[in-house]
Nucleic acid binder design. Structure first.
Lengths: 126, 126
DNA sequence: ATTTAAAATGAGAATTATTATCAAGTTGAG
DNA sequence: CTCAACTTGATAATAATTCTCATTTTAAAT
């Protein structure tokens, strides 16, 4: 993977974000400062960075993928009202992979847990 | 929700399937026996049945949703090679919701765990 | 510094999954 | 039997993402 200014911008912008943005959200954030980054480049770089293990693509948050600069083992909560994504520590499900492997007999290479509900702020407004 | 012949076919076909098909897969299965069921009707019925809690829409299995006639609490494993989806018992992650609620302070209404890897059959072929 | 092949880019077309539209047919309570 | 609410098929529309391709950039070797 060669260096590119655009990739640096994508990574830098994602790192400044705690809300686990979608590609589209990231695109509009990037646009304000660097209008010379195309959508194709953004998607390409997000894929590449995820493939290289530098960032993580969070699936299960339909209708679009979210991206996380934190690659340490952890899970996610998405607010069904505001759409913000929050981290959940991985110690809520100790040994899930080991247990699931034992149960199924399959080798597990990857897993994700997604919780849904209302975040603190959105519960206030109810 | 009124009765409809098409909805009965969709539900019946899904119930006969253990591989948790996507809408598209279900469509081709249904087509062979009931060519008079349109794709729009299939999607509509899957949504309605899921909203009514009669079936479950499994998210997190990009690029398309899979559907499950089993609405009891359980998780899923998807084979990265053949794409088949298998059930994983929910006792691999006891009290995850309770623990996640305690950790985050949010109220959780829904959650899913998706494991990825190679299933038994696909491991043989390696 | 110059060459050069591989990698990356921008713009937009293409693809895929899904939802929306709407006129026509079906269902079921009264 | 009637009528309003529900459902359907065909197809258009949308949204997210990937692909295409001509042009530009990178970096390793001269």
């Amino acid at each position: 993977m060669n260096y590119s200014r655009q990739r640096e911008v994508v990574l830098k912008t994602l790192k400044q974000n705690v809300i686990h943005p979608t590609a589209e959200t990231l695109y509009s954030i990037i646009q304000t400062e660097y209008p010379n980054v195309s959508k194709a480049t953004l998607y390409r770089n997000l894929s590449q960075l995820a493939d290289a293990g530098i960032i993580k693509k969070i699936e299960g948050l339909e209708p679009s993928a979210h991206f996380d600069h934190n690659t340490h083992s952890h899970y996610h909560f998405i607010c069904t009202k505001c759409g913000k994504v929050f981290d959940v520590s991985d110690n809520i499900a100790k040994d899930v992979v080991k247990k699931a492997e034992k149960e199924t007999g399959f080798r597990i290479t990857n897993h994700e847990i997604v919780f849904q509900g209302l975040c603190k702020d959105c519960r206030k407004g109810e």
